[in-house]
């Protein structure tokens, strides 16, 4: 079997990312078209979305440049941001101001935001909704998460939870879009690919996947091409 080098994997991952761009456009043009187009090139939420990218990186544990690449054909950040804003714009603004810091007030960590939110919990459950949106491409409304979070300790809940697809325990959710599903990051954590959306090749499943960090952190810059250098020196 051919030895798989880290370099080959990086090259493969780059090719995969390129293929994914075209695959996504081909499969789900509607989800891209459906994104709000900034009026006259000015997006009033531009700064908020940048803050949202950083917050999302912290919440998910996935590097922000993986979630939102510099050249971003997926627009997942805009989709998740739009869902969070539609769910609770005031709380979102509060979270982003605290997280990014404002004039005279330094940035706060998620733990600090949670501590300040202990009483009303609106930030806690909105941040959970945002985390799940990135992980699963699905929107779990904050109020549903809150309701279910406490119901989980109810013995009746445990009774029903043994049944598959039980209405009594399934938290209602909507897949945000086909694009959001195919770009959801839980698959990166599993070192896999979304079920039904793979750009890998025949037989890959019989071999170890690339190391875990390659799925959740940006690729290092290309190492010097030693093979080429050797060839050149001859």
């Amino acid at each position: 079997m051919t030895e798989i080098t880290r370099r080959a994997l990086i090259a493969g991952a780059t090719a995969t990312a390129a293929a994914a761009v075209f695959g996504s456009v081909l499969i789900s043009p509607s989800s891209l078209i459906a994104q709000p187009s900034p009026a006259a090139g000015v997006d009033p939420d531009k700064d908020a979305k940048l803050q949202f990218k950083a917050l999302s990186g912290t919440l998910t544990g996935i590097h922000p440049d993986i979630l939102v690449p510099n050249v971003d054909p997926f627009g997942m950040n805009a989709e998740v941001f739009a869902k969070a804003k539609a769910a609770d714009a005031n709380t979102l603004q509060t979270i982003l101001s605290k997280f990014s810091g404002t004039a005279g007030s330094p940035p706060k960590t998620v733990a600090q935001i949670l501590a300040e939110d202990a009483k009303d919990e609106s930030a806690k459950f909105l941040m959970r909704s945002i985390t799940l949106a990135w992980y699963l491409g699905a929107w779990y409304a904050p109020q549903e998460l809150k309701k279910n979070s406490y119901a989980a300790k109810d013995p009746l809940h445990n009774y029903y939870s043994t049944r598959r697809y039980s209405k009594e325990v399934l938290i209602p959710f909507d897949v945000i879009s086909a694009n959001a599903y195919t770009n959801s990051v839980v698959w990166r954590v599993a070192q896999a690919h979304p079920m039904g959306y793979s750009n890998l090749q025949f037989g890959y499943w019989g071999q170890e996947p690339p190391e875990a960090e390659m799925f959740t952190k940006p690729l290092p810059k290309d190492p010097p091409d030693t093979d080429t250098q050797k060839a050149d020196s001859k």
Binding site: T58, T60, T131
Partner: peptide, 12 residues
């Protein structure tokens, strides 16, 4: 209830 690196590690 986890987030960030702790979530990644546990879930993985």
């Amino acid at each position: 209830a986890l987030f960030g690196d702790a979530l990644v590690t546990r879930l993985r």
